[in-house]
Design a protein around this nucleic acid. Structure first.
Lengths: 148, 148
DNA sequence: CTAAAATAGTTGCTATTGCAACTAATGTCA
DNA sequence: TGACATTAGTTGCAATAGCAACTATTTTAG
């Protein structure tokens, strides 16, 4: 009856704790300051980068399931943080952009986000940060190939 | 209206994607092969390591909220994967252990888990794996200090 | 010794999740 | 052209999450 696994040292578990801790901290700030969820923020973030894309493209870029995207977009539309057009050439598709208000909020949240990233990485040297970044890229790419 | 943030390159986001991808893959296997959720598995894993601890200690060790722990334990008790005693010296506390069946399942899942860990890390050299492990430790420790 | 505070665990309630079914529009191919 | 498949987006529903309130004990202080 020896323990066969040390959960505390199990890498997927540790990665999950770290990621959740960071996400929760950031989420709390977005929620407290802007009443916006992480899902909503990710939608706004990709629309800041790719104005005019469809809900489906938002789903692909954020890796968020399309029903969540649909509901989050409704909410953001109600709050007038987004604008939606129906595409001329394909009436199923929407064309989404940040509204003026939405862009103002975006401009406020972005520096906050970057500051969080900086803070979380602050215990690592510049070089270590680059190593980490590259390791994550490689692991992500590899993980894709495993979980087909 | 320039994009101010590249979500794809935002580290907390990338970390979250990686962690979710791994967790989902592992979770699917546990669910398909053993009809066990990640929460249930984490409970079993800490009980394999620390037989006889209380629900509260399980909650602390897994970082899972105590109502989730309570409900998951009920389920595991119904399936006879755990045994529960009321502590003699403190009648509020439970003393939880894996049942014989529970331990058998544990013994089956552990090698599977370790194999997943190995597979996900397989694209890194031994040395890189150690670097990653140490970076995660340092980031986790630092993240704790930030989000007080 | 006793009243108040703290702790272990359970349960109620609401919000979020995510799959699947559905509608509407477009694409494919005989 | 016209049936069939595919795609974009929405909605229904069941499962899960997590906060807060509650019960039952135990601990602490006066």
């Amino acid at each position: 009856m020896e323990p066969l696994l040390t959960l505390e040292r199990y890498l997927p578990y540790r990665l999950s704790l770290l990621s959740n801790k960071i996400s929760e901290t950031v989420a709390k700030t977005y929620k407290d300051k802007f009443a916006i969820s992480i899902t909503e923020w990710r939608i706004m973030a990709v629309l800041g980068e790719y104005p005019g894309i469809s809900a489906d493209e938002v789903s692909l870029k954020t890796h968020i399931e399309k029903s969540l995207i649909s509901r989050a977009i409704s909410k953001l539309l109600k709050r007038k943080l987004l604008c939606r057009n129906i595409s001329e050439d394909d009436k199923r598709r929407s064309e989404l952009v940040l509204s003026n208000t939405g862009y103002e909020v975006y401009e406020e949240i972005v520096p906050l986000s970057l500051e969080y990233e900086r803070k979380f990485l602050a215990s690592l040297s510049q070089q270590e940060q680059e190593v980490l970044s590259s390791l994550i890229d490689r692991l992500s790419q590899h993980a894709e190939s495993i979980s087909l």
